[in-house]
Simulated assay, not measured.
Amino acid sequence: MKAIVLDQFGDSEQLVLRDVDEPQSRTGWVTVELKASALNWHDVLVRQGRYGSPLPHTPGADGAGIRCDTGESVVILPSLHWGEREAAPGADFEILGDRTPGAYAEYVSVPVECLAPKPAGYSWAQAAALSLVGVTCFRALFSRARLREGESLLIVGAGGGVATMAASLAHAAGAHVSVTASTESKLLRAKDSGVDSGVLHTDDNWPQAARRLSPGGAGFDVVLDPVGLWGKSIGALRDGGRLPVLGANVAEQATLAVRPFFFGQFSVLGTTMGSPRDFAGLLDLVATGRVAPPPIAAEFPLADAARAHAELENGRHYGKLVLRQ
């Protein structure tokens, strides 16, 4: 079969199409003939060697395709070996494409519990783009932050897959959604997709500007930070608010003033990926028809994975980037 192979860590040009062996059959695992694979920032970190993947290696967490044993159309949950506790993943947890060969290929093998029916009405690209950002956002917003109907949510960084999915899920649950963005064009795209309001985060005073958009100007019930700007993001919360954090592509260190933090009764909630139970909750919400499919910024042939990664890293797109097999 054809697959993208990484022989050494580095820039996007390390991603090379090659002939490799098809996955071997093993008990409890299923081979999927992939139709599409979506890109995530996590894949960039794998390519750079942040997760110590074995080399040579095929990355890729997200995929959708046909089960080779039953012929069913399926979408893949990238959380492998979550474990028995819903509170956090177990010691054997990994994301597909970390150590297990991933979805930048014509075929991939995954545990049977990581497969679910492809959502009705979704294209292959939309289905492939759903899983990682969908389960991550579902867990962050609902399992961790307990976002409820009528509450207010601010999403830091409109334009990426996490932000667009989070906005769609929050709207489906009846929350009021605002965003921050790096450019006017991304802000306009977010508003066109149904976001209630937004501000640019290029100004150092953006938390104060964002607060003015919240109900009564008191701050947001929940601020979702997928980029690592805790010190700023917490300034947009109302007293007693919750800050789920799940990324660090802008900053990997955060400094918080201790006294305002405890007087504000804030909660900072670490979260990543999601369990099979979270995935089931996501797909139940999608089945209501209230969740818009992930917007697709561009599709690339599998052989153009290096070009797709370069596009992912420049950050100018709005929505998800997808490889088509």
Rank of each mutant, 00 (worst) to 15 (best):
L141A: 02
R316Q: 11
L243N: 09
L96F: 12
V5T: 11
D62H: 02
A36I: 07
S185H: 12
M165F: 08
R324G: 00
G289I: 06
G240K: 09
Q208L: 12
L321I: 04
Q325P: 13
D204A: 15
R146W: 02
A116Q: 11
V245H: 08
I155H: 09
W230Y: 00
S79C: 08
S25G: 06
L200W: 11
N249Q: 14
R242Y: 05
K232T: 01
R139T: 01
A310K: 15
P207K: 12
M1W: 09
Q126M: 04
L256H: 02
V74R: 09
T136L: 02
V5A: 12
K232I: 03
V223E: 03
F93W: 14
G217V: 01
G235I: 10
A181T: 00
V227M: 07
H81I: 05
E151N: 05
G289W: 12
F261I: 03
P207V: 09
M273L: 11
G264H: 02
L55N: 10
A190V: 09
P276Y: 09
M165I: 11
N205D: 14
R324P: 02
L282C: 13
F262Q: 03
P89E: 03
D11F: 14
A105D: 08
A175M: 06
V133I: 10
G231S: 14
P56A: 01
T58A: 01
V75E: 06
F9N: 14
L45F: 15
G52C: 01
F220A: 09
V268R: 03
L200V: 10
K232W: 07
Q126A: 08
L283E: 13
L34P: 08
G228S: 11
V156C: 01
P23I: 15
V156L: 15
V286M: 10
N40H: 02
G319H: 08
G228Y: 04
G157E: 09
V199H: 07
L229V: 07
D62C: 09
W82N: 10
G161C: 06
L141G: 07
M165Y: 08
G60E: 06
W29I: 10
D304K: 13
G241R: 03
V112M: 04
G281F: 05
V179M: 00
S178A: 15
T136I: 08
Q265I: 00
A103Y: 04
R211W: 01
A91E: 15
L153I: 14
T288H: 06
A298P: 00
R139I: 01
A297Y: 07
S178Q: 00
R85N: 14
I296A: 03
A167I: 13
G235N: 12
L302C: 02
E22K: 12
E72G: 13
L246Q: 02
G52L: 07
A129Y: 03
D204M: 00
V250T: 07
A303E: 09
R139L: 05
L39C: 07
A145G: 04
A173H: 15
G240M: 06
R259C: 00
D43P: 14
F138V: 01
P117T: 05
V286T: 07
L39Q: 05
G228M: 10
L285H: 07
S143A: 06
